[in-house]
Structures are given as C-alpha cells and as structure tokens.
Amino acid sequence: MTLRNVAALVWDGVAPFEFGVLCEAFGLDRREDGVPLLDFAVCAPEPGPVAFSLGFTINVEHGMERLEEADLIGIPAMRRSRPLPAGVAEALRRAHDRGARLLSVCSGAFALGDAGLLDGLECTTHWKYTDELAARYPEAKVVPEVLYVDSGQIVTSAGTAAGLDATLHIWRQEYGAQVASAVARRMVVPPQRDGGQAQFIARSVPELEADTLAPLLAWIVENLDQPLDVGTLARRSLMSPRTFARRFKAETGATPHSWVTSQRVLRAEELLETTDRSVEWIADEVGFGNAATLRHHFARVRGLSPQAYRRRFAC
C-alpha cells in the first residue's frame, strides 16, 4: 500500500507533543522539497472539542468515519488508565483487517493493546511503561528500551523524539532515503537513528561539545569508505578501545559497529536512488568492501535486496 492518506486519531487526554509529532511528520506541505503531499486529517470518536492532557482543547472536524480511507492511522500518547472511547477498538480492528498501517507514539501502544492488535507481535512504548504494557497484554512481545519496533502492519514507538524516528522510518520505507532525508531536514532532526537503538543513554553527555563524540560522528559519515573498526576509531579519539566503546554506547545508544553499519546502509540507499553505479561499486564506496557484504546488511536492515530497492526508489 502506497502511503497517501494519513489520519491521526485523538480523544480526551491526548498528549500534545506526541500529537504534534504526527502533524509535523505527515501533515505539512513539503512539495517544494520534493516530498509527496499526503492527505492528512485529525479524527476523534465524535467531532468537536478534544481536551489535551495539559488542559487546552482543539476542535476536531472529523469523526472516525474518516479512518476508513486512511492508509496509515497514527495514535499519539493517551492516558493509559482510561478505557478506550466507544467504537475506537472496533474502528482500529476494522482498519487493520482491511490492510491499513497503524502507528503508535509512546503510550498510544496501549490503545492498540486494548484493541487486541498487539497479540503475538513485537512492540514497544516509553521505557517507563514497558513493564505495564507486558503485564496488561501478556500475548504481546514487548521489546523494552528500543526506539521503535516495525512489526509490518503495526509500528510502535517510544516517547517523544522516538516517534519522529518511527515516522521517518515509514517515510523511508514508502518513498526512499531522499524523501525521508528531506522530511528530516525540515524537522531539523537526524535521519539516521535505527529502531534498535536504546531509548536513553547510560549517563549524561558532558555539556562541552569538545568532550562529546559529535565531531567524530560527523567525520565517520564523511569517511564511510575508510576502516572504521573500534581500534581505529579509538585511536582517532585518543582513547583505549574499551573506553571508546563504552563512551560511544553512552552517547549514541548503539555500538560502534551497529552505528557505522546503519550509516553505510543509509548511504548505500542514497547511491542506489541517485546513481546508476553497480552494487559492487557502491559497496566499496560505503565501506562494505564487496557486493555480498552489502547485500547481507541491506537485506537484514531493509528486508529487500539492493537491486529491489533501486527498482522501487530510483530517481
């Protein structure tokens, strides 16, 4: 299903930031940046005023009948202790049955659980609520601490900024790396965080920029064809390999190997979209060394071969 129509479903108690994530990601006109315009609407169980968790309200024009035409339904964070409004669970199940994709942000996952749509699926939510999610829906396979989980038709994400990561993931799946990067640039967020990264760092990052790994991360992205093993990067950072690996995980939420691999896959996506270079050439250019290694990592991360990705997204 090509993503063309998106609905955000809200009711009293909705969290404003997570609602804003859906509006920012899917509701803006970015055609001047080469991003397809989506038909975006906000829906509620009943049209009219909807109260946010912070005390203000918005007026929602559409009822749940608008969900019937949506390719993607987004559910922002809601109050977990309240039962679903009448008809919401049935509407979500009906949308799922006809093939619509469902995305939850933070505690929006509990609405999917109440609708019985998480049974047997890997899923996540904000790290503070993962134990509760697992207890309330024992048939769900809750993955704690990750940014988001893509279980195919259902995508669940952690709190706040992790919702942006999940929306960019969906843009990338539907329209490719170039479009996802354009959306990310307009939102002024990095496009490269994979779902498996940790939701939070192990300790606070020092405030002084010189003491962080930000300059090294920028250098890595510009030098993906170079040897980027832990030993090499540790020497460049004037640290022991053990200290460097620990510091890298603390600052990025990922191991050096997984972070570098994700950057190489992202760069390979861009080259597959924008050039007609061979897979072998691209593999060497992004640091995988040979086409077989690129195919292996690409298939693991994206679920399809480089050739299939090029056929789908090439300019």
Rank of each mutant, 00 (worst) to 15 (best):
G196N: 12
V10A: 01
R235Y: 10
G63V: 03
M64Q: 04
R267M: 06
P45F: 09
L28Y: 13
E174I: 10
H297S: 07
L304E: 14
E270V: 07
A115W: 00
W219Y: 12
A44N: 08
G87P: 12
T2D: 14
F17Q: 03
A111D: 04
A166P: 01
S240R: 13
A218W: 05
R136T: 02
D229P: 05
E46Q: 09
A134H: 03
R246E: 14
R31H: 01
L92Q: 06
D12I: 05
F288H: 04
P16A: 12
R30E: 13
E132G: 11
A180D: 06
C106A: 01
R31L: 02
Q197L: 06
V88A: 01
A77H: 00
E68H: 04
N5I: 03
P215K: 04
D194H: 12
H96K: 09
G113Q: 05
V286H: 06
R172H: 00
D119A: 15
D165E: 07
A234T: 06
I58D: 13
R4N: 13
V21N: 11
F200L: 13
N290L: 10
C315Y: 14
L271E: 11
G20K: 08
R172N: 04
A41Q: 10
F298L: 09
R247P: 03
S107W: 05
M239H: 13
G34D: 07
R312E: 08
G159L: 07
V188L: 13
A254I: 06
G113L: 01
P85E: 13
G152C: 12
H169W: 15
A214D: 15
A308V: 05
R80A: 13
T125L: 03
F56W: 00
P47C: 01
H96Q: 02
L9P: 06
T57E: 15
E145D: 15
E222N: 14
A234D: 03
L118Y: 09
P215E: 09
W281Y: 11
S278W: 08
P206D: 03
Q153A: 11
